[in-house]
């Protein structure tokens, strides 16, 4: 399944295996952990178990930031 996602301001297309895609599959495809990243589906924060469909507006937020501490 092809899913379009917005990640750090950039749009990208993910090609995911299987008929049913969950939010956690998107995080995995981007190599992100649920400890610091989450998915926003159609402007709603969703759990990792949420089902994602190709038409959904998906934004992935990676909270990790670095630099000066």
């Amino acid at each position: 399944m092809e899913i379009k996602v917005i990640y750090r301001g950039q749009e990208m297309t993910l090609h995911l295996e299987g008929e049913k895609v969950k939010a956690k599959d998107i995080l995995k495809a981007l190599n992100l952990s649920k400890d610091y990243a989450f998915v926003v589906k159609n402007d709603q924060v969703v759990s990792e178990e949420e089902t994602i469909n190709p038409g959904d507006h998906i934004r992935v937020v990676n909270a990790i930031s670095g630099g000066t501490l």
């Binding site: 301001g9 610091y36 937020v61 909270a63 930031s65 670095g66 630099g67």
Partner: peptide
């Protein structure tokens, strides 16, 4: 960090998501 980002998103705060170009490879990350 995730709780802070969740708050920003849920409160409708428009923040800069991109990282400082100098922070790439920082040991803190």
């Amino acid at each position: 960090e995730k709780e802070s980002a969740l708050y920003a998103v849920l409160a409708g705060i428009d923040y800069i998501e991109e990282e400082c170009p100098f922070s790439e490879g920082a040991t803190s990350i």
